[in-house]
Design a protein around this nucleic acid. Structure first.
Lengths: 404, 404
DNA sequence: CCACTATATTCACAGATCTAACTAACCGGA
DNA sequence: TCCGGTTAGTTAGATCTGTGAATATAGTGG
């Protein structure tokens, strides 16, 4: 093997698969089923190399032949279809947010095998306790799903807030002030005895978005809204993380000079003006009935979204106002990243995305830089779980996942 | 050789050097002089590989041994220093802006051998004429500098405005409306009989910025101001171009809802509020004496900057107002890209950078996401030529440049 | 002059991937 | 039914790249 660069000195983006083995696994995984010929086209490798690599993958039990492809056109040998052996390995993804702890168990093919949603620890809990709870619940998830623990490759853990790459949280959003400096990753590895990976929620969501569009999108971004607002950039299936793992902090770009103060210390931040917390605050001020939601978290935001969707005009006005601001963030993403596709994801868009989507689309279309190149804006149908799934998928793509 | 991927289907970023040969050339070039031991550390290759590759480079005349390094510490054989043979090859970089045509001849070591600045063609000229002029003047530059034409590897050409990757301009800024759809790159290749490369000015500037800081900066961005405002992201020496080659269009992010209309069709664009043209317009409105500058181009902006620097308080106020807006753009870059370093470059910053720099620094520092990770903001001392130099360097890093 | 140290090279080998030639499987018409 | 046409995949041999172990090279300090 060659230059196994330590992730701590990685150049700010999750590098493209280096070995042919990883490359081929990746391509089969994202295509679902694929023949060897198609692999030669997709990878640029020649047929004999594909044959050799695939044989080893089959020997190792990671890939299986699964019938014949359609006889194309005039004649000739039909293609032998290859598929990832889903049951070969598993990974766990965990998304910690203010309201919830979301667990997913993902198989080697990238499919979600089990999903578990629990009430979040809130902001008053001790990080050590939360981490222990995550470890216990992870074990429980694996046990209950009947998967052999030995086949679980690792755990991807995502949370909001600026991170020190793979270490822990630096300065933190309101819901995570107690986490600053806590060594999340190493504690999880110790407790679970398996590799762990720590990532920003929005970045992971970009990795977790399934591209339903068959167009080959190599440059896409996710706009993620949970308690905060963030974004992630994905290049050919690999997420861009930035120098310190905090790229895509679109929630803290300034969209109004002299605007309201944000918890981050800035003023006029997008998140402070239009994030879920701001929406909830406005709704409270307007006297809307939000039920019994203590927090200003996503649960309260969801209540407002439901009101808006059921015809409450005051709620709708508040959400639409938020959308107008967030559209500026979307435009910024399109201009800065020059993506082919922008996906709206995360719990907040999962409940209110249908209101936001057209407003964001309209704004993207009305900018030359968007219009001339045709940036598409779509809603992720798995918004609730995208971050957790993305965490799992990132672990699935790490070096741990391609060994025999 | 393997997967020689066509640049048109490249994944949106200039990929890292694939062959060891290119990697080693690149490392020696950016370090200036380097020993083989250092190369093993920097590249991850083992000593024998470095020896072998370096020997071939020496045989091919691209690299030369240049004396001994300092005897480190206790004893031992001193390092043999390696250096790029500057005279081995050359490349030309051309920057087309509204006011000027800037040519640079760059040697194989990345040094600027010749520099030529000519009055720009203005906005009324026919693209075909301009391209022919560029071809002629390129030949003239090479001839006058006494460099063997056969050693010139190619030409990098940069201009403002959204591009179709390596083809031509799509929708265009005011000064380039006639260029839309013109096949810049292929015409240059035909006229000159050498490979050409077309790039956005800001993106090229990111490639052209020399890192004086010895800290190893792997993720940096350039904020570029000429007639417009743009930015470029550089990852480990490779520029990020986006899906269509238009990443970093920070000039067209919206920083004021309902703000003034921009030529791009949007409203409240940073460029419309605070770009050189806006500054010139404000200065005209304020009755400042700008001399005989017809255009609203960089020349007129430079006149205002000189007034401001010489103590004219009205001019200074106008520039400082521009800086306050552009600081928002800088903050956006820091948040979206998560860079270690932001360099201010381009003709406009070359004349007015000392006014802008402290204002931008202050704003970056006042955001948590900037402060906690320490994004540095500096001024490029070669701002005038950064785009042209970057164009040349990008050509120098292309596949054409590493063959024997 | 002799340890000692750091730098660089040689040599034999392992692995990946290439080209070229071959086998496998299926179509359709004589 | 058999045979050329066509596409898919394999085998065999060559090449290239990088590796580990041992060795050569060129200084320092006693």
């Amino acid at each position: 093997m060659q230059q196994v660069s330590d992730s701590s000195q990685s150049p700010g983006y999750d590098p493209a698969p280096t070995s042919s083995r990883a490359l081929i696994v990746d391509r089969i995984r994202s295509a679902g089923t694929l023949s060897r010929v198609e692999l030669t086209q997709l990878t640029g490798l020649k047929a004999p190399s594909v044959t050799a690599v695939v044989r080893r993958l089959i020997d190792d039990g990671l890939v299986a032949e699964t019938g014949r492809g359609t006889s194309t056109s005039i004649g000739g040998k039909p293609r032998t279809l290859l598929q990832i052996r889903a049951a070969a390995r598993y990974v766990v993804g965990v998304h910690l947010s203010e309201d919830h702890l979301t667990y997913v168990l993902v198989d080697y093919a990238g499919g979600v095998v089990a999903r578990w949603r629990r009430d979040g620890p809130g902001d008053e809990s001790d990080p050590e306790q939360v981490v222990e709870r995550v470890a216990n619940e992870t074990r429980e998830l694996i046990a209950r799903s009947g998967v052999d623990q030995a086949l679980v490759l690792g755990l991807g853990f995502v949370c909001p807030g600026p991170l020190i790459r793979n270490r822990g949280v630096t300065s933190a959003p309101p819901s995570m002030t107690r986490w600053v400096g806590f060594p999340i990753r190493s504690r999880l590895e110790e407790l679970l005895g398996m590799p762990a990976l720590l990532e920003n929620d929005a970045t992971a969501a970009a990795a977790g978005t399934r591209l339903t569009t068959s167009h080959d999108v190599s440059v896409m971004a996710a706009l993620f809204m949970s308690e905060g607002i963030g974004s992630g950039l994905r290049l050919n299936g690999n997420v861009y993380q930035g120098a310190h793992g905090n790229a895509g902090e679109v929630g803290h770009i300034c969209v109004q000079i002299g605007g309201p103060r944000c918890w981050c210390g800035g003023t006029g931040c997008l998140e402070a003006l239009a994030g879920p917390a701001a929406v909830v605050e406005k709704a409270r001020a307007a006297g809307l009935d939000l039920g019994s939601h203590r927090h200003s978290g996503v649960a309260a935001f969801a209540a407002i979204a439901r009101l808006a969707l059921s015809g409450d005009s005051r709620a709708e006005a508040i959400i639409r106002d938020s959308a107008a601001w967030i559209a500026i963030g979307a435009q910024t993403i399109a201009n800065m990243y020059d993506v082919q596709l922008l996906v709206l994801t995360g719990p907040a868009f999962a409940v209110a995305g249908t209101i936001y989507l057209p407003i964001l689309q309209e704004r993207i279309l009305s900018s030359v830089f968007g219009r001339s190149v045709g940036t598409e804006v779509v809603l992720d149908e798995r918004g609730h779980d995208a971050a957790a799934i993305g965490a799992a998928l990132m672990m699935l793509k790490s070096e741990h996942a391609i060994s025999a």
